[in-house]
Design a protein around this nucleic acid. Structure first.
Lengths: 257, 257
DNA sequence: TCAAAAGTGTTCCGAATACACCCATGC
DNA sequence: GCATGGGTGTATTCGGAACACTTTTGA
């Protein structure tokens, strides 16, 4: 070990003679960043869009609510790290996850220079079982309309996640990730209404979504409802991929009501 | 020189593996990232979409073509850094710039663990005067249909930039950033055709774009053309902001021809 | 029988399409 | 005059919007 670190130091010194930036800053002086990943996990419960927050049980911002996220180990790819962190802190795994923005203000982390790459996730209301662990004391779903104070610059990150989601959801069929595997058309409509904060006309919404030929109608209906049971549908992933190849562009722009 | 940098990378990897024994990682041992910014600068010349590349005059990948980009100093915000780097390497400043993705694979940089945040820029063909400086030997515009081999994972970054641009250009009025301040409607159409790799119907494209009420018709016409001179237009930034507040959504989805 | 939600049909209107045509300029 | 690109008008089609209506279930 000693030999290795000595060698490393020696070689870094040598390299610095070549890797000099304009102002003669030694190469290695750039290498003191921490990298973190933060996940904005969206869920859909009781006709509301929620975000999963964790309560910190470690400094800094101990006891504050924050996004699940952590420093990236030196030997882990960014995307892998995001998935791992989410699993470690909340137990969630195999869920939809997409990078949306990097935040790198100098003063955003009190313990040093940390740039963070933010991801948003969508979890099906089927498998909602976040469990606190590691340095997390508790996990809780909060309505995006009623968020608590957040640690670091996490408020800014959540805001950006929400606006990104609202934009993307119109032109990509990601909304389905928030519903259970089987859903009714009115559940789908209610979801989009919650996401976009709009009301749609029922017959027109149905026609639009069905005309896309992206939903698989199952031979099942709702059970134990005190009214006519609705048919259940499923998103047809395979069909979507086929259509995309033919240049089809998903779009649920229906006029608000 | 190459030998030294590769040895350094190898040894850093070894040391990292030693330090990062799963549990009980000392806090400071996460802080050895380098951060860089890379800019995919798009231009529009001779009816073609181009990307600005620089030829490296420093290790690693000396003499290779690469994206303009550099390590972020410890005391600089990410966004500022992107603008500064572009200015330093090519002289370009005050141009449209938007972050689109972070790349953080462990092995993406031979000299250590460097995560990069990528931006795309759009420059008006008015002020096309990139000038090589710092560690850049030369700058050159390349058609996106005919790119050379690129250093690092820059090919992947360019590809992502192109697909992002193609998607965004449909729903945000960013295309205008690629044209001179004053342009004709057919120039605008040609630009969108180049961007999306499609052909549009002239009368329909005109109607669509004019009906948006986003263009300011000037009292000027083309000069020195051997045909009927075209009227010049200008993008109306103020009007766009007004319309956005009223919920207007830009959309140039015209059927291909 | 009634409440509640599921689900359908039809008219109307405006925007997108396809396509034909005229206009202004330099040579 | 004619080549070249600039620019306009219109009939037709198609999809979105509005809204009234019927159906199926549980209680």
């Amino acid at each position: 070990m000693d030999l290795i670190s000595y060698l490393a130091a020696f070689i870094m010194n040598q390299t610095n003679k070549y890797f000099l930036s304009e102002n003669n800053v030694p190469f290695q002086d750039f290498f003191h960043f921490g990298m973190s990943v933060d996940c904005v996990v969206f869920g859909y419960v009781a006709e509301e869009i929620k975000v999963l927050l964790v309560q910190r049980d470690a400094e800094p911002f101990i006891h504050s609510w924050a996004l699940p996220g952590d420093l990236v180990p030196m030997d882990e790819d960014l995307g892998d790290s995001a998935a791992n962190v989410l699993k470690k802190l909340t137990g969630l795994q195999n869920i939809f996850m997409e990078q949306f923005h990097a935040f790198g203000a100098v003063e955003r982390h009190p313990a040093g220079r940390v740039a963070t790459v933010a991801y948003y996730s969508l979890v099906k209301s089927d498998n909602y079982h976040p469990v606190a662990s590691s340095w997390v004391k508790e996990t809780q779903w909060f309505s995006i309309k009623d968020l608590p104070e957040l640690a670091f610059d996490h408020k800014k990150i959540v805001d950006k996640a929400i606006s990104t989601l609202k934009r993307r959801v119109k032109y990509r069929p990601v909304g389905f990730e928030l519903l259970p595997l089987k859903f009714t058309l009115l559940e789908l409509q209610a979801l989009y209404e919650a996401l976009l904060d709009l009301k749609f006309d029922k017959p027109n919404f149905r026609k639009k979504i069905l005309s896309m030929d992206l939903l698989l109608q199952l031979d099942e209906v709702q059970e134990n409802v005190s009214h006519r049971p609705a048919k259940l549908f499923q998103f047809d992933e395979t069909r979507y991929r086929e259509l995309r190849k033919e240049g089809f562009a998903f779009d649920i722009t229906v006029k608000a009501n």
